[in-house]
Amino acid sequence: MAMTEPADTPTPVTTRQNGSATRYGAGDRPQPTNLADLLERVLDKGVVLAGDIRVNLLDIELLTIKIRLLLVSVDKAEEMGIDWWRTDPMLSSQAKREQDALQQENAELRERLEAWDRPAAASDGIAALNEENVSAVEGRRDG
């Protein structure tokens, strides 16, 4: 007589590091990972895709495109020292306000420089007129 297990024997369960459970069935093979677990792993560890596209014509390089893609979570990116989204005016309202303030300050400084140059230009013009008048007066004396 062969021994059989009762039908209500529980399937072994293994707990992952992230707390989710994996059930092992026939042959103790793990079930396929679902998309959420895969995405969590990718964002936690990070993925780098890199490639170059070059277009040459008769050994003359016409075009080179370098593609670099880093796929990570925001937390992982900050650990790596990447935080460009904080300073991009298209993505951050604070960066947009800072950019607007810098543009306004730049415009004000340009106006001040132009105002400062105007008296110098005016005084140069007056000096030129004075030289012409002096030359004209001296020409009359000689003639």
Score class of each variant (00 low, 15 high):
A2W: 09
A2Y: 10
M3V: 11
E5N: 12
P6G: 07
P6K: 02
A7N: 11
A7G: 07
D8H: 15
D8L: 13
T9P: 02
T11G: 01
P12C: 01
P12T: 00
P12E: 04
T14S: 01
T14F: 05
R16H: 11
R16V: 03
R16N: 12
G19K: 07
A21D: 03
R23P: 07
R23F: 05
Y24S: 00
G25Y: 08
G25Q: 10
G27Y: 03
D28H: 06
R29A: 12
R29P: 00
Q31L: 12
T33K: 13
T33S: 13
D37R: 00
L38W: 14
L38N: 14
L39T: 10
R41T: 01
R41D: 12
V42T: 11
V42R: 03
L43R: 08
G46Q: 01
G46L: 00
G46N: 06
V47A: 12
L49H: 00
A50V: 14
G51E: 07
I53D: 09
I53L: 12
I53N: 11
R54L: 01
R54N: 03
N56Q: 15
L57V: 05
L57G: 08
L58R: 10
D59P: 05
D59Q: 05
D59R: 06
I60G: 09
I60T: 14
E61V: 02
E61A: 03
L63P: 01
L63Q: 05
K66F: 02
I67W: 02
I67D: 06
I67P: 04
R68Q: 03
R68F: 03
L71C: 08
L71E: 06
V72C: 08
V72N: 08
V72S: 01
V74K: 13
K76Y: 08
A77T: 00
E78K: 15
E79V: 08
M80P: 04
G81H: 06
I82R: 06
W85P: 07
R86A: 10
T87A: 12
T87K: 11
T87W: 11
D88T: 02
D88V: 02
P89K: 14
M90F: 10
S93H: 10
R97V: 09
E98W: 14
Q99N: 09
D100T: 08
D100A: 10
D100R: 05
Q104S: 11
E105G: 13
E105K: 14
E108R: 15
L109G: 08
R110I: 04
R110K: 13
E111S: 06
R112S: 11
R112E: 15
L113T: 03
L113R: 07
L113H: 04
E114R: 01
E114F: 05
A115W: 00
A120D: 00
A121V: 05
D124L: 10
D124F: 04
G125L: 07
G125S: 03
A128H: 07
A128C: 01
L129Y: 07
N130V: 15
E131A: 14
E131L: 12
E132I: 11
E132R: 14
N133M: 14
V134N: 01
S135Q: 15
S135K: 13
A136M: 09
V137N: 04
E138P: 05
E138I: 02
G139Q: 09
R140W: 04
R140E: 04
R140K: 06
D142H: 07
G143I: 11
G143A: 14
